[in-house]
């Protein structure tokens, strides 16, 4: 903001001089835009190393390549925690503040602690964008934050697939991940409108594929008449699919979940997973880079850019 007001002051002085010279009052808003001189370094900090972010990376790189054609060199760096560990994630944000990149994009792992450090980054004069997981209105956000609606949409989709009756289960993801919790709540709220559907188990899989497999195996043992499973993240529908496939119960159990990892798409193709709500995370990477460069040019950028999501089914995939 400091530089912005300085520029404004400069413009005001310039226009004042212009007036003194006798010409008409003119304020060239175009002069507020600053040219990019030299390469820009943008640091992205995701929640954890995960295939989901590879698609975000592809989008980010595409935007950087576009800028390269315009002669603006953008170096997109990914600083990825090997594990989803809050302390490690915060340490990376802290360290990058000291490094003072031209832009910092953070996917919030733990909003309550992340906001503290993101505010320190902003105070240090760094351009900050949050992506993927929303954490506060105080920061620009590119991504999809309607998690409860995703859960509700998948509940309605699942209810229709299983004929609006029977026992279903929930793989709840990580108990400390706000987006997982919101999807589960949305799913439950929608299912409350379907009295003939019972939610018979709900277990946290901690975003671990292996754990999702064993939880699903146990759930199938406990409830032989299970007809549906809802996975609240990208890895647990795959885990559920592997378990259901192994048990030979593909025809009995309908699986719905999140995101479009390659294995998920294969399971949809094979008819093991009925449908997933997929985000357009390529867009998230693309626009995050566009906005961070724009911020460096002193452009205005939206506080929120909703990149949305859609239900992917075998039919939808066949159309492509």
């Amino acid at each position: 903001m400091g530089s912005f007001s300085r520029t404004l002051l400069g413009a005001a002085v310039a226009s004042g001089l212009a007036m003194a010279g006798g010409s008409a009052l003119a304020f060239d808003q175009g002069s507020l835009i600053k040219p990019i001189d030299g390469p820009l370094t943008l640091v992205f900090i995701p929640k954890v190393i995960h295939p989901w972010y590879e698609v975000v990376k592809a989008g980010a790189q595409a935007a950087a390549d576009e800028f390269a054609k315009e002669g603006i060199e953008v170096d997109v760096r990914w600083d990825e925690p090997p594990q989803a560990d809050v302390a490690d994630h915060n340490r990376r944000i802290e360290t990058n503040i000291g490094r003072h990149p031209d832009g910092l994009a953070v996917s919030c792992l733990d909003p309550s602690t992340n906001v503290q450090l993101l505010q320190e980054a902003v105070d240090a004069g760094i351009n900050v964008i949050t992506f993927d997981t929303y954490c506060s209105d105080d920061f620009h956000f590119v991504g999809h934050k309607n998690d409860a609606q995703d859960g509700a949409d998948l509940a309605a989709f699942l209810a229709e697939k299983i004929g609006d009756k029977g026992k279903v289960g929930i793989l709840a993801g990580s108990l400390t991940a706000a987006n997982h919790a919101a999807r589960v709540q949305g799913f439950k709220d929608e299912m409350a409108k379907h009295p003939n559907i019972d939610i018979v188990f709900e277990q946290p899989d901690d975003d671990s594929l292996e754990k999702a497999v064993s939880l699903t195996e146990n759930a199938l043992q406990a409830n032989p008449d299970l007809v549906g499973i809802f996975g609240s993240n990208a890895s647990n529908p795959i885990g559920a699919a592997r378990a259901v496939d192994n048990a030979g119960l593909t025809d009995q159990v309908t699986i719905v979940g999140m995101d479009d990892l390659p294995e998920t798409l294969q399971f949809i193709e094979d008819g093991v997973i009925a449908g997933v709500k997929a985000q357009r995370q390529w867009e998230i990477g693309y626009w995050a880079v566009k906005y961070l460069v724009a911020m460096n040019q002193n452009h205005t950028v939206p506080m929120e850019h909703a990149t949305g999501s859609q239900i992917l089914t075998k039919d939808v995939l066949a159309q492509q």
Binding site: V86, D110, S112, T113, Q116, T176
Partner: peptide
């Protein structure tokens, strides 16, 4: 962090 976080 101004926050007591369960996973700390």
């Amino acid at each position: 962090m101004n926050s007591a976080q369960p996973s700390v």
